[in-house]
Design a binder for these strands. Structure first.
Lengths: 208, 208
DNA sequence: CAGAGAATAGAACGATCGTACTTTTCTGTC
DNA sequence: GACAGAAAAGTACGATCGTTCTATTCTCTG
């Protein structure tokens, strides 16, 4: 018995999804590169070759894993924040969901992209490109949200949106990194408070 | 012909240092775990077994590499900042040197500890412990510097030093991470400006 | 400058890696 | 319910991994 959603997925697609979910989890813990086909096959209770056939190469698996993680990130952070009204509220929602995404351990090893970006920083190729693109689009989205808040007069305009986004992201990222290292959930409060304070300090002066 | 420093080092010690310097460089680029003995032997133009004998195990090599990197970090960031007078000046010096340490690419792949901490986050053991300890001591040192600035009346006391250190470190770390990803040196300016502004906003109100 | 001990090299090990090929089992359609 | 094609398993490959053991070369002291 199985819940049928909008589209009936073929067997192959279902196993593929299951593999990728597990792969994304393991990648945040062990790394995307050191995660071997054999390890993943064992974790999904499949044969090495059976799993391998889904992706054609290890790089194919890595790319699919990055895409899978990106979808999850969008669903967990971007999509819910879109529910908030444009402007400061949405900026805050984005940051808050970003912190929550680390806090709730959507991936068991913390933010997938924080982990893998460090791993692939100096490994040119399509995998690195896709990770970079994803992070860039996150930062750009955050930047645009800040811009909208500025245009709405909710945030001062004497600092570029790009740099404000940089600061907000920095605080969220730091909580992710430090939690993974020290396992002290207080860092999430620190990040949220610092973000709120920073946004507060950028408010007022409707005319800019 | 060789420059003789205070203490004449034995041949073994000199090779060991050379190996560790190269190992720390490669570790920030390829990772500390994926950096294989064979790769490192090739990079240092030694035999696998000749190199191996210096450390007894791969873990021994990793621990020695972390210690080596820690010494370099202290020499590049902590030591020069100690030249600045206690208080706000030293806080700024610490942050500025931290950013400069990423900017000057002391390690070719960016901050050694940022890279390796993500890698070992979920790999319990002595290597992870030592990385964690090093980062903790950096954050504690920064926190103490903030405390001194607060006690000197140069920074407000209505926010715990710990959290201020968290924020400052976050900004420096973000510039390191983003530079490695996007290769845009402007992020170092963003970080420095954000840090300066944050410290500025925490100034004044001598009585707290 | 000889000789002891440190430093390095060489060769080999079992294990695991990514990948290719073949064979078996399963799924969904007529 | 048979049958075509997808999905999965089985097996084998060369390469590289960390490590061990032995042999050679170098260094420094007496």
């Amino acid at each position: 018995m199985e819940i049928q959603t909008t589209v009936r997925k073929t067997k192959g697609e279902r196993t593929r999804d299951a593999i990728l979910t597990r792969a994304a989890e393991l990648a945040t813990q062990e790394g995307l590169e050191p995660l071997s086909i054999g390890r993943l096959a064992e974790a999904t209770e499949m044969s090495k070759s059976g799993l391998f056939a889904h992706f054609g190469s290890k790089q194919g698996l890595q790319l699919a894993t990055v895409d899978h993680a990106a979808q999850l990130f969008v669903a967990e952070v971007i999509a819910p924040a879109r529910a908030a009204p444009r402007g400061l509220a949405r900026v805050w929602a984005l940051c808050d969901h970003m912190v929550a995404y680390s806090e709730r351990q959507v991936f068991p090893g913390g933010c997938f992209f924080a982990a893998t970006s460090f791993e692939f920083n100096n490994k040119p190729g399509p995998v690195r490109d896709r990770i970079e693109e994803m992070i860039r689009s996150w930062l750009t989205y955050l930047e645009h949200a800040v811009e909208q808040a500025q245009e709405a007069g909710e945030l001062r305009r004497d600092r570029p949106a790009r740099e404000i986004a940089f600061e907000l992201d920095a605080l969220a990222q730091a909580s992710n990194a430090q939690y993974q290292l020290f396992r002290d959930p207080a860092v999430f409060d620190h990040a949220r408070r610092a973000i709120r304070e920073r946004l507060e300090s950028l408010r007022g002066l409707k005319a800019a």
